[in-house]
Simulated scan of single mutants.
Amino acid sequence: MDGTEEKPKDLIRFTNEKLSVDEVSQSVISPSCGALSLFVGTTRNNFEGKKVISLEYEAYVPMAEAEIRKICDNIREKWAVRHIAVHHRLGLVPVTEPSVIIAISSAHRAESLEAVKYSIDTLKATVPVWKKEIYEEESSWKGNKECFWTKSD
């Protein structure tokens, strides 16, 4: 760093407010970075032949934030990235709206692309966030198939 470059930052946010792709991506831009990679997970309108109206998310936020900090630490050990932002929506998320946005900046594309894939895969496997699918005629709490606590030996 030449003294003018900002310190790397990890921006973690859980909110009931609508997420903004622009806001999240802008938060990780850096003059030293030529790559900004994004993952945007949105609510789709169907699951196993049922019409989905919305999703509802709950989290134990202190634990969820701690788990995401671990993910950020692991990313920084594996890849040369500048900034990491992970925003997750809580409450009701209508069809087509983002539930989670992850943005990572790096000097080159390979690092940020690999780090984004790692972060969403690890988030779904380790972070205590629960999802309820609300269908046209019923609702159902779902565990992520990646979650370590849902696997049986």
Rank of each mutant, 00 (worst) to 15 (best):
S99H: 05
F39A: 00
R109S: 12
W130R: 09
G91K: 12
K145L: 06
L55N: 13
V81L: 13
I68C: 01
V52Y: 05
I84S: 02
C33N: 09
K18T: 15
T96S: 15
K132A: 03
N45L: 10
S30K: 01
I101K: 10
P62Y: 06
I71S: 06
L36M: 03
K117Y: 12
V127P: 05
I104K: 07
F47I: 06
W79P: 13
E23L: 14
N16Q: 13
N144Q: 12
A66K: 15
V28E: 04
A103K: 06
I134Q: 09
Y135S: 04
M63V: 11
G49H: 11
R89S: 11
E111T: 06
R89W: 06
I120Y: 04
Y118Q: 11
P98Y: 03
R76T: 11
Y135M: 05
K70C: 14
A85T: 06
V61G: 12
V28W: 01
E58A: 05
T42M: 03
R109K: 13
N16H: 15
P31Q: 03
D73L: 12
R69W: 05
E17Q: 14
K132I: 00
Y118M: 14
S99C: 09
A125N: 03
T122D: 04
K145D: 13
C33A: 14
E23Y: 12
V61L: 07
W79L: 11
S32V: 04
V95W: 08
G143Q: 12
W130D: 04
S119K: 11
R109C: 07
V21F: 07
F39V: 00
E136N: 12
G49D: 01
P128K: 06
N45C: 01
K18E: 15
I53C: 07
V61C: 09
I120R: 06
P98N: 07
G34Y: 01
S20F: 07
E58H: 03
T43S: 07
S32W: 02
S20Q: 04
